[in-house]
Design a protein around this nucleic acid. Sequence first.
DNA 1: AGCGAGTCGGGAACCGGTTCCATGGACACG
DNA 2: CGTGTCCATGGAACCGGTTCCCGACTCGCT
Lengths: 341, 341
Amino acid sequence: MSGIADVARIAGVSKSTASRALTGGGYVSESTRQRVIDAARVIGYVASPNAASLVTGRTKNVGVIIPFVNRWYFGEVLEGIEDGLLACDYDLTLYNVRPGTTSRARIFEHFLARKRFDGIITIGIEPSPAELARLVSLERPVVALGGQLPGIASVSIDDVAVSRLATEHLIGLGHTRIVHIGGERSDDLVGSVHGRRLTGYMDAMEAAGLGAQILYVPSDMSVPGGYAAGVQVIGDPRNRPTAISAASDEVAVGTIIAARRTGMEVPSDLSVVGVDGHEYAEMFSLTTVEQSPREQGAAIVDLLMDALEGRPSADHVLLHPTRLVVRSSTARPRPEAMTRS
Amino acid sequence: MSGIADVARIAGVSKSTASRALTGGGYVSESTRQRVIDAARVIGYVASPNAASLVTGRTKNVGVIIPFVNRWYFGEVLEGIEDGLLACDYDLTLYNVRPGTTSRARIFEHFLARKRFDGIITIGIEPSPAELARLVSLERPVVALGGQLPGIASVSIDDVAVSRLATEHLIGLGHTRIVHIGGERSDDLVGSVHGRRLTGYMDAMEAAGLGAQILYVPSDMSVPGGYAAGVQVIGDPRNRPTAISAASDEVAVGTIIAARRTGMEVPSDLSVVGVDGHEYAEMFSLTTVEQSPREQGAAIVDLLMDALEGRPSADHVLLHPTRLVVRSSTARPRPEAMTRS
DNA sequence: AGCGAGTCGGGAACCGGTTCCATGGACACG
DNA sequence: CGTGTCCATGGAACCGGTTCCCGACTCGCT
């Protein structure tokens, strides 16, 4: 174990000079700086972040609070964040607060209190008031992805617009009996992603004079969830819709699988549109509104870095380069279906 | 910011006594211990892990090196590990060494050298000799999941047996023209999971006297990868197989989607068997050999904890409660297909 | 020549804990 | 009553860096 004292001795300087040379603060002549750096390289010296952060108060580490790692969106975002943090020389500690586990309370009460990080990124989390107070009490910058919180800078896409765009695509094709799968009635419609996407669907329907046809089915935001909801929606042949506006691509894919299982053809019997730009979208020829979670990860890292460096930054960043990619899971409805409506 | 000095002052004892009372070492009378604990609770004191680890050398943190977070297997394993570590009061820092990025070298050279952890878990990683040397030079216990390394304790399932079991199921149904999708010829057949599953397939074929029929197609271990390979295998109607033994469920699902796209029925035209027990398996009625990544995550944490506590432990733990779950993606081959062989 | 500003480097304090060592009291035993 | 052991506690050193403060030296200017 070689410490900075060894480096200093080899370079023939004092600890303080060695530290200045390596961290780049204060006055050090170019020649001695070089000598110190060489000495450090020779013995393979790497500063202990523990010791450094003890005095500087900065850990070069950020905490990421995330509900899932193996849902596509969250996985992609996480990888985007990891890349961004690596580039800024930060480590990443993972706090996985999966719903339905007891770990959430323990993480908020116990693990976060250790303050092993300079800042926190939350992803798709809606903290309770108590949790929010906890976060604030850490006295570290907190930024949120996908959900606005009072007093916390955030990044998100315009979920209302995205879902409205998807629904308008179906309406433009001539569909009128369109069901939305994903949003849950119990959700706070302003706060949650699910809720905002439901709102987008409803906005589009109302704008087209189809307010009376609004119908939505709650679903887990996953392929199996979409499958189950799809089975339910398709199950009743009498008031079967001609199109589905799904809140995510995973839901959309699940719905497509359910439709095929039931012997329905996509898109001739049923059009399906999703939101995400999932890696499976192409395979299923899924029409979807793309968002790029990796970029969102990068953006949230930028925002946090602004806060850490004390740079001024926006309260809220709205990423909007989302675009509709039309593939062959959507088409005009069958004529008989149209008249039957 | 309250430190242990504040706790000590409030409790009316010295720093050293306060420390002993809170960490549980040395002699402290029950009454003063209680007084200290109360004082700590009153001011919401949480010890700085940085300061503590500076002197103890233990960080209460482990590093996890993982190639993907959003492949099902890896995501599940990661969640299993997170749960296990939380239970032991450890934090988790994530080192994501996605193939095809430059981050891998930076992580091994730069980030690991910071030694912010008491131990390392690698998942499905095959380190180069240089990387292995790096890991050893950290002087911290390293354990590996899914891949044996010289001098490193590990946990894995019997990939050869698992794949053999899957293939034997197809042979038992009467299939003879069975293609394996997944393994790559270039892989070290002993070292990699892909390779071992290929070996299991070949073993089963040879044992059944079908050695001459052995055929395998390399593929990315993902749904799109399986889809692409499936298209390729099915593409040539002349020597189309009657069954596919896929190296993972994601590959199997991709193959099923490809088959359906081509108008083939599963299982009547093509039987498909996978390995994993993926969350999509039921939806696709996939016959598969289940493994439980979450348990593997728990097991690898146990192994690391043994090493950290200095307990003796096995060099290698072979988890074998893997079982074949038969659903309806596999069936007897069509008679004409059998004779045509 | 005298002086101030700017540059360079060393000594020592400090971050917030843990642990070694010394001290002192209580108690048992010869 | 002296002495040894055990228990409880406090003081101080220490972990490995960073940073404050101060002294010395150089240089340019009056």
